[in-house]
Write a protein that binds this DNA or RNA. Structure first.
Length: 933
RNA sequence: CGGCCCGUAGCUUAACGGAAGAGCCCCCGGCUGAUAACCGGGAGGUGGCGGUUCGACUCCUCCCGGGCCGACCA
């Protein structure tokens, strides 16, 4: 070997097969296929068998539609939790699930069928719903898999699975046994044209003109004494006169002012006295054409509490009650209350124990419970009749048409009504369910902590839970009726009978079999003769279904264990799944089904506005995955504090993509210098060859491990991201790795100096790869294949063990020393920048530094390696008194540049054989040429 | 309208009531042996008006903007 060969050939420049270009769109699916081939999920399970269980129980997404960013956020967060727990040594199986029943699917199927649905029975419709749901399960599964979510994807839980349906019955049976389930009248939206119940989502609002009437109900008792003698009436306003027969109360707001008005009827000249909201008196009198009136007295709403009035055309006395929703916006501030015909009226009725009257049949005609004049009449036809009845009793203050928006059926396009029907409920008061649930809530860890007050308030205020729905696509409430007597049969024993039946045949059995075929063992044949037996047609609220998953998935069928370590969903689930789950769990097991509940915010757009589901400002999850790759999306999710709302934009994803490249490049650089480091063997490595800066770097890595682990333990992934990213950018890329270049490139390839550096690089690589594995499962697994071999290295990073800080590198004194060196470096860099600006130097190696250090700090500075660490030609230290901080003077180096290592050194030119090299390079070249290779 | 929550540089985020810091982006420069890289430098901020305090991003009142859930539309 001689100078004929360029010196560059003797350098150890980075070489690696690890591509700088991520090409995630191609590589990720390949890797996912590989995971499936090697059955990685099962391997992980085997690997963690016997370890402490920590189950994150999946909240089932609705099996309908392509996934959107909300799904990405939720599933990626779950995956990061599960992957971390697994790497940290827990047995953390993840069984994904889907919510398969419910209105949206049934609605979609109904729309597709159009008029053909009329001739179909429930089983046929259900079969189509099943196909629709399973179609989306399959599609969404593919989309979740594409995101790299690890789990038992081909053995998921589905709420339409017979096993699941059976477990729902098991929960229902326990609640029936506990006495929580009862049947009661409740008003629901009813389409009188289609004779069917409608859900909120099936309503369309259209403008109609209704007769609005002011009616004076004579008060018989309880008028405040300040109002003086004489007859007083409570003046109400309604746009649905036909509901007046069901009036059982008048509601006032306790805080509002009410006035007693004495007025003269402009037509008859008679004098009347009415009570109404003080602020509305003038307006109402004006509407009624009244010019002569005076306010006689005034009181607060609460002063009217307990007063009683007589119904205008029915022989009935009813109370004036207080309701917070009553306002002085419209009407009279006194609200006609018919619990059978309005949602709020119903609530008020429940509060005051009022009867729920609803003398209307399923075609919207008055039944014989209504006044004789109305029986058989349709409710809308009855409006003028009712008005006439009021007028004839002299109680009609005023009538006028009102144009307003009114709900219509989505299919019939006809106005719908509120009609009371029998519904099933779970009582939150029975057996102190509410109190017990609040106590159970207290035992749960809520993250963020305000989750507790949120759900606390919701459970504290919620009414009884209406669990029945008048639909086909769901799990039946398996009740049998005697058609003749109206008696019903629903017992713990009968429900358990159906539980066993459904386990064998699925809930379809209820729809396919006749009532006679569904007789449970405890049915009294005398009270329920077969010939008058009828099946109930209601199904369970889907929230009851998903709320039973703690039984259907945790306690039964999947061997996961009860309760779950964690539930993790969006903050809307405090009302939804968290609540339905804890209510059913407390009602059946007395405790919460989860130890920790983690909630995340909602995806909003760049301006912080709600993200529309389709079009507009929505960022497409599928398109972004396609374009940037799953790991970039995952890094983006990881970088955000999900406790708040998440501003999502393509720009943000682009920035995540930049960060991803920085991380990838840092790893690529590590690997570029490890290509010839065949075996990473910490046990035999001679640690005394490590230099000070290496020990410092390893100490920093310890700190990273500690901080990152703590952040993962708190599920604060954005802190993981920030810590690792800044470590890569600040500590490694711009400092340690930069300083290391000279040693890695120019020293003997297998000499102790370079090997020591490589040891650190290998350690950095291995540790950072594992630390990032929960966030970047594809990239880290690819990186894992490039890790230098070591004893017992697992086949995948996802089978690795979580790293721990190495106590050998802990040294607070050293860390302090390097902190000082780095601030000195900052000063030096500023000085170098000055020279660069003045065009005196380009690279820092072209400069010499004279550093003036305060005498008392001089001892703390390791001057031996400053030239290397500051990457300059030479460094002179001058001790100076009276300084508070170091001062750096930079000048152009007088030394020649070494042709091989490009450093400017005084030793260049001293060797005759290699006149263009520094002493170090001469030494290395000699060693290389004397070696056998 | 009610319950819960959020608002720090263009972006993502720090700061026991004690000097508003970091990274990215951007701009300027360097290197050309991490090169669809790498290194250095610079600019840039507490949504608003008040209050408590020696001192407020931090605590309080109100306002503005936004989110989730609920109620309203008689």
């Amino acid at each position: 070997m001689s100078t004929t060969k360029p010196y560059k050939e003797t350098l150890n420049l980075p070489v690696t097969r690890f591509d700088m270009k991520a090409n995630l769109t191609v590589r990720e699916p390949e890797r996912q296929a590989k995971w499936r081939e090697m059955d990685l999920y099962t391997k992980i399970r085997e690997n963690r068998a016997g370890k402490t269980r920590r189950v994150l129980h999946d909240g089932p997404p609705y099996a309908n539609g392509d996934i959107h960013m909300g799904h990405v956020l939720n599933k990626v967060l779950k995956d990061m939790v599960v992957r971390y727990l697994t790497l940290a040594g827990y047995d953390s199986p993840y069984v994904p699930g889907w919510d398969c029943h419910g209105l949206p699917i049934e609605h979609k199927v109904a729309k597709d069928l159009g008029s053909k649905i009329a001739g179909m029975d429930a089983s046929e419709i259900r079969e189509r719903c099943r196909v629709e749901a399973l179609k989306w399960v399959d599609i969404q599964r593919k989309q979740f898999l594409r995101l790299g979510i690890s789990g038992d994807w081909f053995n998921p839980y589905l709420t339409l699975d017979p096993r699941y349906e059976s477990s729902i019955m098991d929960v229902l049976a326990d609640l029936v046994a506990g006495g929580y389930v009862f049947r009661q009248l409740k008003p629901i939206h009813w389409d009188i044209h289609d004779r069917t119940a409608l859900a909120e989502a099936e309503l369309e609002y259209q403008d109609v003109t209704s007769p609005s009437v002011f009616v004076a109900f004579p008060i018989v008792a309880g008028v405040p004494t300040s109002f003086g003698p004489g007859e007083w009436s409570a003046l109400i306003w309604t746009t649905t006169p036909w509901t007046l027969p069901a009036n059982v109360a008048i509601a006032a707001n306790e805080h509002l002012d009410y006035a007693g008005i004495r007025y003269t009827d402009p037509k008859t000249g008679a004098t009347h006295q009415v009570i109404l909201a003080a602020d509305l008196a003038a307006k109402v009198m004006g509407l009624g054409g009244v010019s002569e009136y005076q306010e006689v007295a005034r009181c607060k709403g609460r002063d009217l509490a307990g007063a009683r009035y007589r119904h205008v055309f029915i022989d009935r006395e009813s109370p004036i009650v207080m309701a917070q929703y009553v306002s002085a916006e419209d009407g009279t501030g006194l609200v006609h209350t018919a619990p059978g015909h309005g949602a709020e009226d119903y609530q008020t009725g429940q509060k005051y124990g009022l009867p729920t009257l609803s003398p209307v049949d399923d075609a919207g005609r008055f039944t014989d419970e209504a006044p004789a004049e109305l029986v058989g009449k349709g409710v809308f036809q009855a409006n003028p009749l009712v008005v006439e009845m009021v007028r004839s009793r002299g109680a009609l203050f005023h009538e006028m048409p009102l144009h307003h928006s009114y709900p219509h059926g989505w299919r019939s396009k006809k106005p719908v009504i509120f009609r009371a029907t029998h519904q099933w409920f779970i009582s939150v008061e029975h057996n102190d369910l509410r109190k017990n649930t609040l106590a159970a809530i207290d035992q749960v860890t809520w993250l963020p902590s305000w989750g507790r007050s949120r759900i606390d308030a919701m459970v504290g205020n919620r009414p009884d839970w209406c669990i029945s729905r008048q639909r086909n696509w769901g799990v039946p409430i398996p009740v049998l009726f005697n058609d003749q007597t109206g008696d019903h049969h629903l017992t713990a024993e009968s429900v358990r009978f159906y539980r066993d039946l459904f386990r064998r045949e699925g809930a379809d059995a209820w729809f396919k079999k006749t009532a006679a075929e569904l007789v449970p063992p405890d049915l009294n044949a005398t009270r329920f003769p077969v010939e008058s037996l009828r099946k109930g047609t209601d199904i369970l609220d889907v929230w009851f279904e998903s709320g039973s998953s703690h039984r259907a998935v945790l306690a039964q069928n999947f061997d996961l264990g009860y309760p779950a370590f964690m539930y993790l969903e969006g903050s809307d689930q405090h009302r939804g799944w968290f609540q339905s789950s804890i209510l059913t769990a407390v009602g059946t097991t007395g405790r919460a089904p989860f130890e920790t509940v983690l909630t995340h915010g909602f995806i909003v757009d760049e301006q912080g506005k709600k993200m529309a589901k389709t079009g507009g400002n929505a960022v497409s999850a599928l398109k972004m995955t396609e374009q940037y790759g799953a790991d970039v999306l995952r890094l983006y999710v990881a970088s955000l504090d999900y406790a708040d709302d998440i501003r999502m934009s393509e720009r943000g994803i682009k920035e995540a993509s930049e960060s991803y490249r920085k991380i990838r490049n840092t790893f690529r650089y590590l690997l570029g210098n490890l290509e010839d480091y065949a075996r990473f063997d910490p046990s035999t490595f001679d640690v005394t060859t490590l230099r000070e800066i290496d020990l410092w770097a390893l100490g920093q890595l310890n700190g990273v491990i500690r901080d990152v682990t703590a952040s993962y333990d708190a599920f604060e992934f954005y802190k993981v991201y920030q810590r690792i990213y800044q470590f890569c950018a600040v500590d490694l890329s711009s400092f340690y790795l930069d300083v290391l270049k000279d040693r890695l490139y120019a020293e003997l390839p297998d000499g102790p100096d370079r090997r020591a550096a490589q040891y650190v690089l290998a350690r950095l690589h291995e540790v950072l790869t594992i630390l990032l594995a929960p966030i970047l499962p594809h990239t880290t697994d690819e990186l894992w294949e490039f890790v230098p071999d070591r004893e017992g290295k697992p086949a995948s990073v996802h089978l690795a063990e979580w790293p721990e800080p190495d106590p050998r590198w802990e040294d607070a004194t050293r860390e302090a020393r390097w902190t000082a060196i780095r601030s000195l470096r900052d000063v030096a860099l500023t000085a170098l920048e000055g020279m660069r600006k003045a065009k005196e130097i380009g690279s820092g190696q072209e400069a010499s530094l004279e550093i003036m250090v305060p005498s008392d700090q001089a001892a703390g500075i390791d001057r031996s390696r400053l030239t290397t660490v500051l990457m300059v030609s030479e460094v002179t230290i001058v001790e100076a008194d009276g300084l508070t901080a170091p001062i750096v003077k930079a000048s152009k180096s007088p030394h020649p540049k070494c042709e091989r290592c490009w450093n400017l050194r005084p030793t260049v030119g001293q060797d005759a054989e290699h006149p263009t090299l520094c002493d170090r390079c001469v030494r290395v070249i000699r060693a290389l040429s004397s070696s056998p290779s």
